[in-house]
Write a protein that binds this DNA or RNA. Structure first.
Lengths: 213, 213
DNA sequence: GCCTTCAGAATTATCTATAATCTGACACCA
DNA sequence: TGGTGTCAGATTATAGATAATTCTGAAGGC
């Protein structure tokens, strides 16, 4: 049995999905013994999975006292948005000189998928793919990792707020970003991107809960 | 024996120091079995320590193939500097309204310690303390954690380049930041901070290796 | 000389057992 | 009644054993 993923990685991936989707609620305890039993594994790779979840901001470990799903307070929504608003344009600025036609093509396909999405999970995955595709050519691994983790956090907020509010966003910013990049205007692409993910006061954007993923 | 730190945390802290100081060179293998023997421990908490080191950007784990000290390529120096240049002002902007006289006092003391430092390690710790003290009141934990990790990376670069080049920096930016904050001018404080940690081309700043910690 | 295969050694990942710490119930005392 | 101490059971952390995977060098074939 030659698996690509270690058991710890597999458990981490499964728990990640449940946390992000909201199935595992913020603050709820993650019992290493119970999860080990569920996965028919020893508790040691479960602990390793918890370490990884914590590193991605999805869990909070309290040494000797257990691990919990990370809280996702409303106040931190702004924190996530503002970090993205400074980090994503930074990545795009470095990525832009390396963006090929192929990258733009893949980004456009991701955006098309987002526009066609009929449920919020499909939309979020396509949206995340759009962003990642454009930023990846920057080649700055630490920065990309930070952005990835912020996207996970964003997804949690998105899914947590989906009830009653979600409509397929009719969002032109992605197209504007692509158009600017095709025109070689990375400054405009960066500023549209920054505005696109920027925190805005809730009063003005009730349906999106204060930011745009 | 009631210890505050778990063994994994202790091992992580010790290895951290060695990585940051340069004693453990970039790319060098971290052997779980050897380290376990050195600490007279099982390899399991060593693995947990490796997970934590990786989360902080100090190690790179290759599943089933071992763990290495994270590379610190010169190219990534710029990445670290630029991330700091956008994240630290963001944190300071949110911290400024919460900064008390006590915070400013502690920051001034840290700066004094930095100015009086006679070796680079003392200076680095005081410098880091200065930054952290000012930014902590923002209360944004994810952001502060990111900045902390960037400071660890900065320290690695600083110590790696210390030979022959290090002089006690005669740096007025810290004082300018404090003065602006005392005057309630957070915009100036933020822009000085951004400039202070900003990436500059190596040609113009040979002695500091391209950025200012 | 180069490439492929394979066995054995080395190393990492997980398991099971044990040690350490935490939690909550209960008893006792002022 | 409220506060404190004790202790059993629950839970987490680590040790040592075992299983799984990778690495390395030797042998054989072309």
């Amino acid at each position: 049995m030659k698996k690509e993923m270690t058991l710890a990685a597999e458990i981490c991936a499964r728990l990640s999905e449940r946390i992000i989707s909201g199935e595992l609620a913020a603050g709820s305890p993650l019992r290493q013994d119970h999860i080990a039993a569920e996965f028919k594994a020893s508790h040691v790779p479960v602990r390793e999975a918890f370490r990884e979840l914590e590193a991605r901001g999805l869990a909070q470990r309290l040494p000797r006292r257990g691990t919990r799903v990370a809280e996702a307070p409303h106040a931190a929504l702004r924190e996530v948005a503002e970090m993205r608003a400074v980090l994503e344009p930074l990545a795009l600025r470095h990525a832009a000189p390396q963006i090929t036609g192929s990258v733009l093509q893949r980004a456009a396909e991701a955006n098309q998928a987002a526009e066609n999405a009929e449920d919020i999970y499909t939309w979020e995955e396509a949206n995340r793919r759009f962003h990642r595709t454009l930023l990846e050519p920057c080649g700055m691994e630490r920065l990309l990792r930070s952005i990835d983790d912020l996207h996970l956090a964003s997804a949690r907020y998105l899914f947590a707020g989906k009830s009653r509010e979600w409509q397929s966003p009719n969002d032109r910013d992605h197209r504007a970003i692509l158009a600017a990049l095709r025109a070689g205007d990375s400054a405009t692409a960066c500023s549209v991107l920054a505005r696109h993910v920027q925190w805005t006061p809730p009063r003005l954007r009730l349906q999106a809960g204060g930011f745009r993923p």
